[in-house]
Amino acid sequence: MAYTAEKPALAETSDQLRARIPGWGVDLDPRDRPSVPRERFDPGSSGAHWDFPERQPEKWPRERSNEHKFLTPVFGTSCPPKGVSGAMRKYAYKRFSEARAAHWLILVAADRVDSLGSHFRSFLTLRPDNPITETGIRSELTHHGLASRMGKKRADLAHQPLDPVIIAGPWVLGGVAAYAGLKRVRKSVGRGAAQSRVTITS
């Protein structure tokens, strides 16, 4: 079809579609669509019986966006900020608005510090982190891991090999750093001992 004013014809008419597809066109009239118009002022319809909600007790200084005038009357109380990651989170909220990349990038960095610290702390508990059970990787054996991928045109197969790198990467890097640090300590201890032997002999 040339580029003319006509709308390209459809394969099926509305009547044919109505006959083939259950409910076709029942919301054709925008007035039947619940989110049309986008804003519909009707403060009495929500079930709220307050103008402004009673305030939930603040049991610790709750971090909040500096774009808010005050702490919202209700908020989640999961996982209060703790340790280094907690300090990073508080700084991100206090110093940078949501408009600043720094706000979000510090929060993402805090997430990584939090997870690494939690993994290390877990080894001091009776339930250390277990990468086998926590990644659910066993389902590869029980839920057709190979068959779900073999011979399939799946775009995600190109990057799935990165997943183990992302999961294990911090551990490998941590191990390498720990090994290098240990080696350095042993070396400096060895050098110190040799020096003291020299001092003693001389």
Binding site: P43, S46, A48, E63, H68, T72, Y93
Partner: peptide, 25 residues
């Protein structure tokens, strides 16, 4: 999670409630 009474909830924008998320506006 929404309060039902803020500027946004009063207009049916429950997913944009201003009274329940201190961490982000």
């Amino acid at each position: 999670v929404f309060c039902g009474s803020c500027f946004f909830c009063a207009r049916g924008l429950y997913s944009n409630c201003h009274n329940v998320n201190p961490n982000a506006t």
